[in-house]
Computed example of a mutant assay.
Amino acid sequence: MEKIEVNTYLLNKPFTTVSQPFGEGVDVYKVKDKMFATLARGKMGKADSNYWWMNLKCDPDEAAILRDIFDAVIPGYHMNKRLWNTIILDGSIPQGEIERMIDNSFLLVVGKMTKAAQKAILQR
């Protein structure tokens, strides 16, 4: 997936906004003010990579499995490495798998919200 496709997919999630609280070059995606993804060129904003890097929240067991399966999935860069993965968008991971990882990150964050917030988000 390319940056534009990823950005569109992320922003199509209900109640999602994007901002740059960490500075220019690092997009932070939030659902109801709770972060579920980041997207930046290279090492989260450093211009030493030709690829976009995306951080996504992940179940700890699944995070480890994904790192074993895909070379382009590494422990979350500048994140809690147990709960976050960095996905290097180098074209080696199928689009459907990237979308599934995004969906899981979104649902993990929504799952920690109040029942009322969950209902409002998931019914949309």
Rank of each mutant, 00 (worst) to 15 (best):
V73F: 03
S19W: 06
S92C: 07
D61L: 13
Q118M: 13
V31K: 03
R82Q: 14
A47W: 00
L108G: 03
C58L: 08
K46I: 11
Y9S: 12
T86I: 07
H78R: 11
I65K: 15
I98H: 11
M101R: 02
T38S: 09
K13F: 11
F15V: 06
Y29L: 09
L89I: 11
F36R: 10
E62C: 09
A64S: 11
M44S: 09
A64G: 06
D59G: 04
A63F: 06
D68G: 15
K112P: 09
I102S: 04
A63W: 08
T17H: 02
I4K: 13
T16R: 01
K119D: 12
L56P: 06
P94G: 13
V73T: 10
A72S: 15
P60K: 12
I65W: 11
R100E: 12
Q118A: 07
L39K: 04
T16M: 01
E62R: 14
I87C: 05
Y77S: 06
L10V: 11
R41M: 00
Q118L: 08
K57L: 05
A116D: 00
I65D: 14
G45S: 11
V31Q: 08
Y77G: 05
T8V: 01
N55T: 02
N12E: 15
E97A: 11
E24L: 09
K30A: 11
I65N: 13
D61Q: 15
N104F: 10
L107R: 14
F70G: 01
I87R: 02
C58H: 05
A117I: 00
F70E: 09
A63G: 08
T8S: 07
M79Q: 03
I74V: 15
D68Q: 15
A120L: 09
L56A: 08
V73G: 04
L39C: 09
D33T: 13
G25V: 00
Q118Y: 12
R124C: 06
F36I: 09
S92A: 08
I88R: 11
L10G: 07
F70T: 02
H78E: 03
T8Q: 10
F22Q: 00
N7G: 02
L108S: 02
V18E: 13
D71L: 08
I69H: 08
F70Y: 15
E5Y: 00
Y29F: 15
E24K: 14
W53L: 05
D59N: 13
A47S: 06
L66G: 10
K57C: 03
